[in-house]
Amino acid sequence: MKYNQLGKSSLQISEVGFGCMSLGADDQANAVLIQEAISNGINFFDTADLYDHGNNEISLGKAIATAKREALVIATKVGNQWKADGSGWDWNPSKKYILASVEDSLRRLNTDYIDLYQLHGGTIQDPVDETIEAFEILVQQGKIRYYGISSIRPEVIREYVRKSNIVSVMMQYSLLDRRPEETSFPLLMENNIGVLARGTVAKGLLAGKAAAPYLNYSAKEVAQAAAGISTLSGENRPASQTALRYVLQQPAVTSAILGIRTAAHLSDAVAASAALPLMAAEVAQLNHILPVNKYEQFR
């Protein structure tokens, strides 16, 4: 497993991260899967207080209880507040809510500190200064080591780059979603901020799922992209791994966060890290399959 430094932090994280959102409700099964991931070199685990009403954090906490905490990088997210009746959630990036929520996440994760605490969204209308102040207080208190944001909005990303000490941005990126390349990737690389990529196989469309419209691309165009991935794949590098290698070979990307729910998912994720890298000519070939899409909103 390859490890990369996350932006300007001191965190060394596996290039394939374990996305815990896909985990089921069986804590014992989750523990077996997570411990196997650790054995295979995955050290970065991403969850959120939103997932399964906090139970996702609890399950992760139980799974890592016997592991060496200092060897793991635990990331979670905050900002979405469940309604009292559990029917949905409201966006709440306030200082008060963040300072209170971290206590709940620490308890559920059964840990004394969170390595990476991320704002789970954000709009340009948020009280950004107040939100940043909350994260800075938590760093000073030692409850979190670093903080970042999860956002695909260029205007929000620019604001946090300008005003805060974020070390990472989690965003969607794949051959079918190259929108971050226009402005976000250059800005983040210039400021030594790591990218945590999600959605690398575009809901499975780049890994064998039947073609369907995706973002601004038609089903026909999606099929063209999938065919391009397939052409460069084979027994030694299945389509899902080719799609992932494409993402990992983007210089701005520090780690790809994969949703892992089964032993087969884990095996594929580990194999992807060891898969043959794409040659420069292969990357260029994929880059020319479709016109690059760009963000149309929140620019």
Rank of each mutant, 00 (worst) to 15 (best):
V195T: 06
A212Y: 03
P251N: 05
A210I: 05
Y51Q: 04
L119D: 06
S150G: 14
E235W: 09
A274E: 12
I132L: 04
L6Q: 11
Y147I: 11
D27V: 12
Q141Y: 01
G17K: 07
I193N: 00
N165I: 02
L99H: 04
G204M: 04
N165V: 02
K220A: 15
N4M: 12
G79F: 09
I42W: 03
K83W: 07
L33C: 04
Y97H: 15
V78P: 07
R69F: 06
V195Q: 00
R261I: 02
K95F: 15
D49V: 05
Y51S: 03
P154N: 13
E136H: 09
G234M: 00
I193E: 00
A63I: 03
G7P: 07
E155F: 03
I229N: 04
A29H: 01
D90I: 14
D27N: 11
A207D: 04
Q12V: 06
L286M: 01
I157S: 01
F298V: 14
D27W: 04
T183P: 01
N236K: 14
A75I: 08
G208W: 05
V32G: 05
I229V: 15
K83P: 01
Q172N: 13
G148I: 07
R145T: 11
E70R: 14
V247Y: 05
E221D: 09
Q12K: 15
L11V: 11
G194M: 02
L6T: 07
Q118P: 11
E159P: 00
G142I: 08
S255E: 09
L278M: 12
V139R: 14
L138I: 07
S105D: 10
G79E: 07
P291N: 10
Y51T: 06
G19A: 01
D27Y: 07
I124N: 06
S87D: 05
W82C: 05
E133H: 12
L23A: 07
R108G: 12
Y3V: 08
A84F: 06
N287C: 09
S168Q: 02
R158V: 06
F45T: 07
S87E: 10
D126W: 10
L60P: 07
A75H: 04
Q172H: 11
S94Y: 08
